[in-house]
């Protein structure tokens, strides 16, 4: 079994390495000279040159790459060109906010999805099922930012219950988390529904009823437990969705997380910061998926049987 684990780990590292290289190359293609952007085109040539030297962009590409890898292995991602602060530090400030947002919204999404997904599945093709499916379909069609702005308009402006933007305490978390949570609950609800329906079709559901178990026990204990398996795998995908969605949500709500940092650093052509953000996003995403794969392997006995 651990041979399989080792193989997967190696594959993960290989993918990470490729990713890092790709990110490095790609980001170097972002147009715009950082020195000019910061100091203005009218600055003197010497000043611009010295700034470029400081950033290291005057070196040929392959030397930059070697330095980059060397620093990466040391755990050094460089300094932000704008704020002069350590990239790791900048990221470190932003990550907790994004994590907070992601986790809370995933909890919100899970609660909504499990509740409505189960109702939809056990009442298949009735009115409540069709309404839920309609809402799910409509939910897919509302972009996060529109949802966010709408919620701000309604609850911050019209009702004044929550602050319009920024972070600071639970109250300011509620709207962004609700927005992102609603956004993620849409695909999750559909998944819960499909998964439950899939299990309900199986023969052992009839056998369980034949034992004399009440419908309640059959559905909420046995069926749900079986349906949970594919849902748990989807959590990895959900995490990716939450990261991507956080980019927009954080921008709309001015939430000081990684998403907002990414947009901000792109707009200011702050290469090390962009690099750091993208690396963190993608590596984090890959790692989470890897861990979810492992969990899935342990959670579903049938997968273990197949792998044997």
């Amino acid at each position: 079994m651990s041979k399989l684990l080792l193989f997967r780990l190696v594959r993960l590292l290989f993918t990470l390495f490729l990713l890092v290289t790709l990110v490095f190359i790609a980001i170097r293609f972002i147009p715009g000279d950082p020195a000019t952007m910061m100091l203005g085109a009218s600055s003197s040539k010497e000043v611009l040159e010295s700034l470029r030297k400081e950033f290291g962009v005057d070196q040929p590409l392959y030397i930059q790459y070697i330095n980059f890898i060397k620093n990466l292995l040391k755990g050094d991602l460089g300094f932000s060109w704008r704020s002069r602060r350590n990239v790791i530090k900048e990221l470190g400030n932003a990550v907790p906010y994004t994590l907070e947002l992601s986790i809370v919204s995933m909890i919100v999404a899970s609660i909504i999805a499990v509740f409505f997904g189960i109702i939809s599945a056990i009442n298949q093709n009735t009115f409540s099922d069709n309404i839920i499916r309609l809402f799910v379909l409509m939910g897919f069609s509302i972009p996060v930012f529109i949802l966010g702005i709408f919620l701000i308009y309604l609850f911050s402006f019209k009702f004044g219950w929550f602050p319009i933007s920024g972070a600071g305490g639970i109250k300011s978390l509620i709207l962004p988390a609700t927005t992102l949570g609603l956004f993620m609950s849409v695909s999750l609800t559909r998944l819960v529904r499909v998964s439950m329906l899939d299990v309900l079709r199986q023969n052992y559901v009839i056998a369980l009823k034949a034992k004399g178990l009440s419908d309640y026990v059959v559905i909420y204990y046995h069926v749900f437990r079986n349906a949970l398996i594919p849902i748990v795998t989807a959590l990895g995908m959900q995490f990716g969705l939450s990261l991507g969605g956080s980019v927009i949500t954080e921008t709309v709500f001015a939430w000081p997380g990684m998403g907002r940092l990414l947009i901000w650093s792109i707009n200011s052509r702050d290469i090390p910061l962009v690099q750091g953000c993208v690396l963190l996003f993608s590596c984090g995403f890959l790692l989470v998926n890897f861990i979810v794969d492992l969990i899935y392997f342990y959670v579903d006995p049938r997968i273990r049987a197949l792998e044997k």
């Binding site: 023969n203 052992y204 046995h222 437990r225 579903d300």
Partner: peptide, 15 residues
Amino acid sequence: SIIFQEPFSSLDPVF
């Protein structure tokens, strides 16, 4: 009580 033709598909696979 009843027993079915396919015993594998009559047992809950995760218990």
